[in-house]
Amino acid sequence: MKENDEIKELFAGFNPPVGDSRNFMNRLSRNLDTIDLIKKHNIAVRRVNRMAAVIAVIAGFAAGVAATMLLPVLKAAVGTVEAPGISFFLMSVPDLVQTGLWLLVGVVSVLVTLCAYDVSAGLLKVRQK
């Protein structure tokens, strides 16, 4: 117990000079300003990315629908191909044309989605500035 009191006494009068509180608060305030600025920037970037993603999905979906609607036209166009080697090849694998055309629809949708994301993100960033 005595030992405890001795240590307590040791710290009772401990009051070292801590430097100017105003300077400390000013320095902290500057740090907090920087954090707020970065936070704001991050929120804005997230918003732009979310908007760009929504636009890209819509554009990709629209491109997919448009390409699907064009499928009969494309199929007919493939049917008119007259090169004997190719015709024979297409006739021997009946699903190949269908599969190839669906693949084409998929590729077009993905490409449009990616391009739409890049373009809309760029435009939104410019608009934000």
Binding site: F14, S21, M25, S29
Partner: peptide, 14 residues
């Protein structure tokens, strides 16, 4: 937050 800092900074720095 700033008012909490003002209240605690002296003791924390010590």
């Amino acid at each position: 937050f700033t008012s909490q800092v003002e209240a605690t900074q002296g003791a924390l720095r010590r």
